[in-house]
Design a protein around this nucleic acid. Structure first.
Lengths: 195, 195
DNA sequence: GGATGTGAAGTCGTTCACAGCT
DNA sequence: AGCTGTGAACGACTTCACATCC
């Protein structure tokens, strides 16, 4: 809406776009503070900035990819990260030489791929706060343990397996097969659902 | 648990593994039928089969990838699909020749990449029911429209943009930047959260 | 005896409706 | 006059607790 030049937006407009109730929008925003102006609405630019601040997106997050297979290299060349405040500042693999040729040809400039045993050392140097696990599932827990050892507190796990970390660390899973299962369920039961 | 040779499982055990309440597990399962045996628990093999049937995973789902960039080719070589009952039976792109070299070297046998204008025709031939959108966001809605035209009722959208489809079609989004935002939020507010 | 399946109770989240500001 | 912020009403989901059945 900001890009479209809109100056002000009401909770009703936001609700329409998000397919939720207007009171929900107001309650949710009000939970974090008073961002709106009574009788007017919310100033788009201000709201955007406030939401970014609330979500912790008003600064850069430095990330590392661990496991440079197909998914890992896809993430390395995922340009949309740049628009958001995320930056991949390191890539690790168990076998960097094997991987390096495959990856470098896909990106403009060759990407430096380091051996995982340098994770802790490099994490400190480059102030890495988030680790992206893109290894096979069999290695995911080991990698998680290494991230914990390196005091990288945030983990985004793409490997289709459950991993556990100590108190103080946060894991979020990206299991798209789970979403796919959900889709399959909805498709299977669509006819019943419509009655 | 089946692979580990476990024969029977209680709702309490399942609850422990899933970090939820035992009554929740029983209620949720009971919603679909009576799968347990009072005084005993649930037979692992039977429960597994019942859940697969409920979710619609007791058959093969034939899928197509549209957009063979980094993410699309990662999905094409994602072996874990095979274990689950999902199968990618076609890949489309706006420019197959440009893509074909890059992809074929990554997989054992070369993958046939078709021009998107053959989507409808091939969808019928190969009985495709699910489409995976892995194009840039700018093309996502156009691809969704083509999938709808081809009567592919299930869509898994990896492009970071909202797409709309008519009644009768199902879209599920895989926005990992949303999950990443969630992670950033949790990391930002971790200290307050602990108090 | 022991774990399920399930009404009843309890808790949490959503929506309503309007006072309070601009 | 109009839209936010919010207590109160409502509805939905979760948990309890126990009758039921193996």
């Amino acid at each position: 809406m900001d890009e479209a030049g809109e100056k002000v937006v009401s909770s009703a407009q936001l609700a329409g776009r998000c397919m939720v109730n207007a009171a929900q929008v107001r309650k949710d925003l009000a939970y974090f503070g008073e961002f709106g102006i009574r009788g007017v609405g919310y100033y788009v630019k201000d709201l955007l900035a406030d939401i970014k601040r609330i979500l912790g997106l008003n600064r850069e997050w430095r990330m590392a990819v661990i496991g440079v297979g197909n998914l890992g290299s896809a993430l390395l060349s995922y340009r949309d990260f740049l628009k958001q405040n995320y930056k991949i500042v390191a890539a690790f693999d168990i076998d960097p030489p094997k991987v390096i040729g495959r990856v470098s040809e896909k990106l403009g400039k060759p990407v430096e791929i380091l051996h995982v045993n340098r994770l802790k050392e490099v994490a400190k140097e480059r102030l890495i706060e988030i680790g992206l696990i893109t290894t096979p599932p069999s290695e995911a827990q080991k990698v998680a343990d290494m991230l914990v050892d390196a005091e990288i507190r945030g983990i985004l796990n793409f490997a289709p397996t459950q991993i556990t970390v100590p108190e103080g660390y946060v894991v979020k899973d990206v299991f798209f097969t789970t979403i796919l299962d959900n889709l399959a369920y909805l498709l299977s039961n669509y006819n019943e659902g419509r009655r």
